[in-house]
């Protein structure tokens, strides 16, 4: 926005008065540019923000799940924020297996205690941390991989009974969603 080029055929000499005018013009131009930039940014914000999750989407961000019907050794898959959540009712043996692991030997070093609130219930997001596939192993009859947890068929990641990555390309353990036990048979995820 340079307006200082004198484009008219004006031949009046530049007096001190004019110079003062110049500074004021520069200041007003700067101010106008500032208004333009700020106004543009403020106007752009609602356009961008509208792409964030809407209120109805956010309202479904928590789900309550009745877990009383899941027998030991079985698991249930729940839809939460468009993703599967694995709720696994672990057997004594599975809990022992999970707790016995030497934490330092793991890729993603987490003890089982850090990953569960109540040992018999393992709740994880059922999305492989490699490239987002859903691992198999929810049913007793499924292939559960070398460590008795889950096995991701896409690129062969093996998870153990605590949902930790043990073998394969996945970099991290299965994520733990925020959840709480409302009572012994109900959990709220999210």
């Amino acid at each position: 926005m340079s307006a200082d080029t004198d484009t008219t055929n004006d031949n009046t000499p530049h007096s001190a008065h004019d110079a003062e005018g110049e500074t004021r013009r520069d200041f007003m131009q700067l101010l106008a540019s500032a208004f333009g930039v700020i106004g543009g940014a403020l106007a752009a914000w609602p356009l961008i923000n509208s792409l964030n999750p809407a209120k109805d989407t956010l309202a479904l961000a928590t789900v309550e799940v009745d877990i009383s019907g899941i027998p030991k050794g079985e698991a249930k898959t729940i839809m939460w924020q468009g993703k599967p959540v694995f709720v696994r009712h672990r057997t004594e043996e599975e809990i022992k297996m999970a707790e016995a692991v030497e934490v330092q030997s793991l890729t993603d070093k987490q003890s089982d205690k850090e990953r569960v609130q109540r040992p018999e219930w393992l709740i994880t997001v059922g999305v492989c941390t490699h490239l987002g596939c859903v691992p198999v192993g929810q049913k007793m009859t499924d292939t559960r991989g070398d460590y008795g947890g889950w096995f991701c068929p896409c690129h062969g990641s093996h998870y153990d009974t605590s949902g930790r990555i043990r073998k394969g390309p996945a970099p991290k353990n299965l994520a733990i969603p925020p959840y709480e036990f409302i009572n012994d048979t109900t959990i709220r995820i999210g």
Partner: peptide
């Protein structure tokens, strides 16, 4: 309010620029 202030500033810029037109 923002637009009114902006309009005021723009008017002053416009006037200043046009002041040397004969």
């Amino acid at each position: 309010v923002f637009l009114l202030m902006f309009a005021g500033v723009m008017l002053s810029v416009k006037r200043k620029i046009w002041s040397d037109v004969h």
